[in-house]
Amino acid sequence: MGPLTYFGEISTEWNYVIAIFIGMAFGYIMEASGFSSSRKLIGVFYGYDFAVIRVFITATLVAIIGLLYMGYFGWIDYSVLFVHPTFIFSATIGGIIMGFGFIIGGFCPGTSLCALAIGKLDGWVFTIALFIGIFIYSLVFPLIKPYYNMGDMGHITISEYLNMSNAWFTFWFAIIAVAIFYVTSVIRKKVKEVRY
């Protein structure tokens, strides 16, 4: 029963080897989906290429459904999975800052690493700036610490918050996802093609 490392079935050394392989798969999938190109990524905001949102939502949906089924059949202990903690203030503001970073920089951290790997200099610059951004954050951290910890809601899930079952939330999410896929395909046909 998974997660394997949680139940001590994998030693630390192997865990790191696995980390490299998982990372390789992650990098390969992103690059093969075209995430190393900032112009392709940013197309999602101007309607000429919706690859990002399609990959992103499909991946989320597959993972949510898959993990819930695995939990149901007892292959994975759903209760010990790491649920990203919710700090309402920092999640919102951080998301907004990252939204600006995305539209200006044309990458997000994972995709900039992919771009870097295939020699895109804008990817290199973005990654170096990412380092500096993290460093600046550490310098101002004492000043913004109270905001960082504001609105702590713990390891809450969205279905708990909306007071519905995981299954029903997933069902509605699947319907919304399909609707998004359809709408984006309609928009895509109307927007002038951009070659890159």
């Binding site: 949510i64 970073g101 994972g110 170096i128 993290i134």
Partner: peptide, 27 residues
Amino acid sequence: GGLLFGFGSQFARGCTSGAALSGSAVL
């Protein structure tokens, strides 16, 4: 963009992959 993303990702405890993708995967 990199500067903003670096800063924002630390503030939000994760970026597009860590917070948004992996977070959403477990709801």
